[in-house]
Design a binder for these strands. Sequence first.
DNA 1: AATTAAATTGTAACCGATTACAACAAAAAA
DNA 2: TTTTTTGTTGTAATCGGTTACAATTTAATT
Lengths: 331, 331
Amino acid sequence: MKIKDIAEAAGVSTATVSRVLNGKQHVRPEVQKKVLEIVKQMNYSPNRAAQSLRSRQSSMIGLVVADIQNPFFASVCRAVEDVSQAHNYSIILCNTDENPEKEQMYLELLQNENAAGIILSPTKRLAKHFPQELANQTPMVLIDRKVEGVDVDSVLIDNFSAAKTLTTHLLGNGLKRIAGLFGSPSITGEERLLGYQAAFQESGIKIDPDLIIELPAKMENAHEAVTKLLESESPPEAIMTSSGLLANGAFRAIRDKEIEIPGTLAFATFDESPWTSMTRPAITVIEQPTYDIGMTAGEMLIKRIREQSRPTRQVVLSSRLIIRQSCGSSQ
Amino acid sequence: MKIKDIAEAAGVSTATVSRVLNGKQHVRPEVQKKVLEIVKQMNYSPNRAAQSLRSRQSSMIGLVVADIQNPFFASVCRAVEDVSQAHNYSIILCNTDENPEKEQMYLELLQNENAAGIILSPTKRLAKHFPQELANQTPMVLIDRKVEGVDVDSVLIDNFSAAKTLTTHLLGNGLKRIAGLFGSPSITGEERLLGYQAAFQESGIKIDPDLIIELPAKMENAHEAVTKLLESESPPEAIMTSSGLLANGAFRAIRDKEIEIPGTLAFATFDESPWTSMTRPAITVIEQPTYDIGMTAGEMLIKRIREQSRPTRQVVLSSRLIIRQSCGSSQ
DNA sequence: AATTAAATTGTAACCGATTACAACAAAAAA
DNA sequence: TTTTTTGTTGTAATCGGTTACAATTTAATT
């Protein structure tokens, strides 16, 4: 079923059919009606590959994230999909696992695919060697990670401030030996570490460097690290983690050791998850506007696709500290 | 940068370049080497739209699920992506929300896109009116839901037995008034309901029809339904839910009312989630082999893409009852 | 050495849409 | 009525690959 078949059935040329289908220029209403009828009757829809080849633009949006199993990205992804769908774009999902080679591979793929646009949570390496030409050529929106000195749209939260806020909250509760688990290598993890350090700085309390742990953001890693931490000679008074996945492993390790929260150990983390409000004590968290991030990124991308030359902008959405019982503070 | 440029630079025809790139037939090793060198040097990679147009096959696999925010599907998705990537396919992600129109729209899109294959968790309507022609024409693997009397590959767990096992476990603990929350409209929910009923049947205990609740699998719905249930004149002794999302809302409602588990109310659910082992008491669940389902489906799809005519098969993976403390059983 | 078979390469058609251009018709202006 | 403008339509080129077919070279066989 191709455009030629429709053209023949309607007694017009393929050009006319194409014009009708794309709502272009001058076509007599009666011809238009006839063509549409036949299109409907024959249940025709155009071949995307042909369209894409000719117009040098596909209807695909590349969504490149670290890991779709991370609820943060799942939520972002869902939002992007909702927005895309409303504008007749589909999404190609790419997981990088923070691996620059995978990321590179996917970016090339998306170029070859003539993706209409790309939404990307860049790895640390990409942030260092940012492909500005690619961004100039293909509409792109960065999410979740700050990349300095490049001209590209982005949507993120202020990770530095959020981490500082959370740490300050812990310090404010009289906790001093606060261990921090930060995802690595990851820009997000890095920024949050800086916020953590800044909070200490400001409070005048010294950080025990042994309590700063950078590690790949996987549950098992956090479990292992926290287990070791808790078995050490001078265990911390509090633990904070920089992502939901890390929180999970960490919390499990704490539970395994049957350590009392917040009595013996306080606990707080980035990322609101289904479980953070369900444990007893419920857990103090920094909640990110995940769906909003995805939605905003999606909308910005659509706008850029429509108007390639619009000035770029950085949107910073605000996160929220939800104080619960895991840090010993009353409300 | 197109194949013609490479051909010219290498002093051969485009056909030869194409042959080299696709590892086809007869090309003199020296020519091959030369072409590959130039391809590398000029950093060429082929236009996917053109390839897809001519060969009538894209390198895209459609993954159609109910909702990527459901951790079950996120895990399946991740597995599919891993397998796809290893075979040089990418995935187009489609969320249906159990909405047949959305599903229909996406299936058409995937056809127009010449998707190499489709992995699909079908809605109830699709199961009734299964597009066998589409399945014959495009490699397809069904996941998660059983569809009767069609000739198509599928990967699932035995939902009926799993639900029966879980319900029998509750009954075995002396619980009789067991409320069940089942996702609807969804084949999975339906099958689990049947298993639930069968367990009662077998035990000779009557079901109070008021305790069977079918509802869209969203947290809020479950929260609302359970709240109402708990406020009713004759509240249940136990609640089981047929999916992780429902479990979340249900558990939250129980917590909100500060009802003691398992003393006053027992609780169990389908789907192992990060939080089910972290609450106190920890929750008894049916754990599904999520990653395995995705991986198996992915591999089956690749095989079918390679050999369109192979006989179809149904793979049933086994789920596992994890007994914890939420149902009052010692274990 | 002559014949046959196999390997290598190029030419050009093709996939299915979009669109520049030309042709023609109808309406408006002179 | 003639000329100009505007609107409608078709023809054919084009996007960038793949591949059938034919042509040519090389190797194997008789």
